[in-house]
């Protein structure tokens, strides 16, 4: 009979604990440079996003 493998349990896996720490440290998503454009009728906010400067040698798609 197959024995319980702590390696396959996320709760006891030390690597999972490391992952959780890493996930908590990761900062929340934010726009690069966004400006609030207007607030809709339902209170939703519309942002206008501004470009991130291009890496030299790369081009805009259109």
């Amino acid at each position: 009979m197959k024995e319980f493998s702590p390696k396959h349990s996320k709760k006891t896996d030390p690597r999972q604990a490391v992952r959780e720490v890493r996930k908590a440290a990761r900062k929340d998503f934010s726009f690069g440079e966004a400006k609030l454009l207007f607030v809709g009728e339902d209170g939703a906010e519309y942002h206008s996003i501004e470009p991130i400067s291009q890496i030299p040698g790369y081009t805009y798609a259109f």
Binding site: F31, A34, L37, G40, A44, E45, Y46, H47, S48, I49, F62
Partner: peptide, 9 residues
């Protein structure tokens, strides 16, 4: 040339 408007909700 283009403007991007986003609605997060």
């Amino acid at each position: 040339r283009h403007r991007v408007v986003v609605r997060s909700e």
